[in-house]
Design a protein around this nucleic acid. Structure first.
Length: 715
RNA sequence: GGGCUCAUAGCUCAGUUGGUUAGAGCGUUGCAUUCACAUUGCAAAGGCCCCAGGUUCGAGUCCUGGUGAGCCCACCA
């Protein structure tokens, strides 16, 4: 009962604040701006405890800056999250026996937007109960036209600057998601597999060269054998051909420095179509690229009678074949890490495919020059990012998905059916279907590239697109660069590093002045929270049980920059309970000071009594420390001081002393209590508003009252 | 194989630029409590601040080496 009525009150305050326009930024206001950018959560599932922490931190800073008199913009939004969304959504569809293919593009899209809407609503529910004071009138979703326009501008800029190209490249392909993914989107699983030592006969001889491989099924696509330089045994074979045991093809044997001396036999089969290293070696030695496995993860015609089989089965069969022909010298158990798709955990199949890329080197170099203009917390992230920029590689930006921004490239069906890329090739870049005719053949049968852009291609523009770039809006002028941005460390390269490069390249300015990396909340065994482990803690349950303010306070205790923390439902409950009790303490302070006010109170005081002086001095110290800690984003230190002051110094000490001279302490009690509430408001917005409203006060809300400065000095 | 981070009370963690006797919450123990207290207050116990060196008048904090844990990056077939 009590909990429910409390929740209603909280929502009431939230509506009061929002209805009063307190959350809105005003680009026309003469106040100085302070801008905070919410990292857009992925439209995938519900917001978790990490989001709750992240967004509570943002909200606290926004409320603090507002009270300090800034025109605050806390801009919220949601990311469409291409691959993750599709894999989640398609899983949902499969429960109904449906699939992408069965539904078709139009119907799938319609359902997808509905699904997005459901998730979106749950986000808003969470944001509301957490009390997030964001400017909802400026909320952005990364698939909306505003972002499409910015993304097109980005694409066009790279195209015009010749930083964009399309080419055959070995990519990491997820057969289940049906798309290329980036190295950054892979993870590794330890697996024990068989390492086969396979004999390849030397052409025109009875001798053999032996290679070690864990993937016998790809032998069908072998187009060479490389041995390390000056191999004592195999060097005599260099220049000769080996016979591919499964196809009978003759393949060249050559030396290459990239072959490891101390692994396997010192000879490496080269399969340019199915391995990144082989691709590189094959390219340098002009080897043909063959595919034994296709994009669905099945064997191709090349594998003859093994065609159509899935990789795992083909591996067995290929090994048996080799065994039967006595081509296997031996096999060993071999434990290595296998790349899998971060999203669906399917084994990655490297394949050669036509993809779009951006040349990143000039962007990275520019970012490196300006990195010092950003204040990183913790500061070692400057080095982490700069190391990454130094060994940057080209960014593959195309994905074979439906959920995303379509690549804004149109090919002339008549004169460029192969969809080649080039300024003279009957192709156009345009956000909409081009209206002009093909300059080469004068027809207008344009067809758009079917792939979509990598999610991060648009998310990387978040600091710009949210403010209306490429248009020169007044928002862009006033709030850019952002004062504050925060994120989880795991997307430092995917997102943060890209935002920095793209903002500098396109706008010639850093995207944000302060970049805060919070730690990762983990379970009691140090594992990340994940759906599959089922170890997550639902923030809503904590709020239900302990209230928002207490939950927020518990989360700030984990808000030290860059520090991972172990927690559990039990530990969260302990901390929440503690801060719930702190809230009770605040209510009792109010009761003591106001509801149980004696008759004989003194109207005013110069706080000259030594006990008054003492508490005022403590309070002034508190104002300084809370202000300073908020200015430097150390929320965990600020709440420690607030807690200690209010509970132990004010309640346990001063209030006890005051009982001897209750009447004359009234002005001091009221001043200290009210100031404490104001200092606490950014952290515990609801209870502080509730109590502040019951006090004698000026102004409409504690939210828009002036931040305490501690002008009162006792003699 | 590189790189980064961490190691502080039984547990989860603070400890800003080196500076008295190293802190909090929870937990434990004892006492009090018809007091503003959905209990709260008072008190206690509990620490070779991972190990070994070094710098310094002074080190939990800085440097070197070691041990252990975690994370990130990397093409070991």
């Amino acid at each position: 009962m009590g909990k429910n009525s409390q929740a209603k009150t909280d929502i009431g305050w939230y509506q009061f604040w929002e209805g009063s326009g307190f959350f809105k930024a005003d680009p026309n206001s003469p106040k100085k701006p302070y801008s905070l950018l919410m990292p857009p959560p992925n439209v995938n599932g519900e917001l978790h405890l990490g989001h709750a922490m992240q967004q509570s931190i943002l909200d606290t800073l926004a409320r603090f800056k507002r009270m300090q008199g800034f025109d605050v913009l806390l801009l919220p939004g949601v990311d469409h999250a291409g691959i993750i969304f599709e894999s989640t959504f398609n899983k949902e569809l499969s429960k109904e026996g449906l699939s992408k293919q069965k539904l078709g593009y139009e119907a799938w899209m319609k359902r997808a937007w509905q699904f997005k809407e459901e998730i979106y609503n749950s986000f808003h529910k969470t944001w509301t109960f957490l009390g997030i004071s964001a400017d909802w009138s400026r909320e952005v979703f990364t698939l909306e036209p505003k972002v499409a326009k910015a993304t097109f501008e980005e694409f066009k800029t790279f195209w015009e600057q010749d930083l964009l190209y399309k080419g055959a490249y070995i990519i990491q392909w997820c057969p289940k998601c049906g798309t290329a993914i980036e190295d950054l989107e892979m993870e590794y699983q330890e697996r024990t597999e068989k390492l086969y030592f396979v004999k390849y006969q030397i052409d025109g001889s009875n001798e053999f060269i032996t290679i070690a491989t864990a993937r016998p099924e790809t032998i069908f696509a072998d187009t060479g054998i490389a041995v390390y330089l000056q191999h004592p045994k195999f060097r005599s074979y260099v220049g000769k051909n080996a016979i591919n045991p499964l196809t009978g093809n003759k393949i060249p044997i050559f030396e290459d420095s990239r072959v490891e001396k101390n692994f396997g036999t010192g000879a490496l089969k080269i399969t340019p179509g199915h391995d990144p290293l082989d691709f590189a070696i094959g390219k340098d030695h002009n080897l043909p690229i063959l595919h034994a496995v296709d994009k669905t993860g099945r064997m191709t015609e090349l594998a003859k009678d093994l065609a159509e089989l899935k990789i795992e089965e083909a591996k067995q069969k290929a090994a048996e074949k080799l065994e039967n022909m006595r081509a296997i010298e031996k096999s060993e158990d071999y434990t290595h890490s296998v790349p899998v798709c971060e999203r669906c955990k399917t084994t990655i199949e490297p394949l050669v495919s036509e993809e779009w890329f951006i040349k990143m080197k000039p962007l990275a170099e520019k970012a490196l020059k300006h990195l010092d203009e950003i204040n990183f917390l913790p500061k070692n992230y400057r080095k982490i990012l700069s190391d990454w920029y130094k060994k940057i590689h080209d960014w593959s930006i195309s994905r074979s998905l439906w959920w995303g921004h379509r690549i804004p490239v149109w090919y002339c069906q008549k004169c460029n059916p192969a969809r080649e890329v080039g300024k003279d090739k009957g192709m156009a870049i345009s956000l909409e279907k081009p209206t002009q005719k093909c300059p080469v053949c004068q027809t207008s049968g344009w067809i758009q590239d079917e792939q979509v852009l990598d999610t991060w291609f648009s998310s990387g523009l978040w600091p710009l697109a949210t403010l209306g770039w490429p248009d020169a809006t007044k928002e862009l002028k006033k709030y850019y660069p952002w004062d504050f941005e925060l994120t989880a460390p795991e997307i430092k390269y995917l997102w943060i590093a890209r935002q920095i490069m793209l903002s500098l390249w396109l706008k010639n300015q850093i995207p944000f002045k302060n970049m805060f990396f919070h730690g990762t909340l983990r379970d009691s065994q140090g594992r990340k929270f994940s759906k599959s482990l089922g170890n997550g803690i639902n923030p809503y349950e904590l709020v239900e049980q302990w209230g928002v303010d207490a939950t927020r306070m518990a989360l700030y205790t984990y808000a030290a920059p860059g520090r991972d923390a172990r927690t559990s439902r039990q530990l969260m409950d302990e901390r929440c309970k503690n801060f719930r009790n702190f809230g009770t303490k605040l209510r009792n302070l109010h009761r003591f000071i106001f509801e149980l006010k004696p008759e004989d109170v003194t109207a005013s005081s110069d706080f000259s009594h030594p006990e008054d002086t003492e508490i005022i001095q403590w309070l002034n110290g508190l104002i300084d420390s809370v202000t300073k800690n908020l200015e430097s984003y150390k929320l965990h230190l600020a709440i420690e001081d607030l807690y200690d002051f209010i509970w132990h110094k004010f309640a346990d000490s001063y209030i006890e002393w005051s009982k001897k001279r209750r009447g004359e302490t009234q002005p001091c009690l009221e001043y200290v209590f009210k100031t404490s509430l104001e200092l606490l408001h950014p952290f515990m917005p609801f209870i502080t508003e509730e109590l502040w409203q019951k006090l004698p006060h000026e102004g409409k809300s504690i939210m828009v009252t002036k931040w305490p400065e501690g002008k009162i000095t006792a003699k």
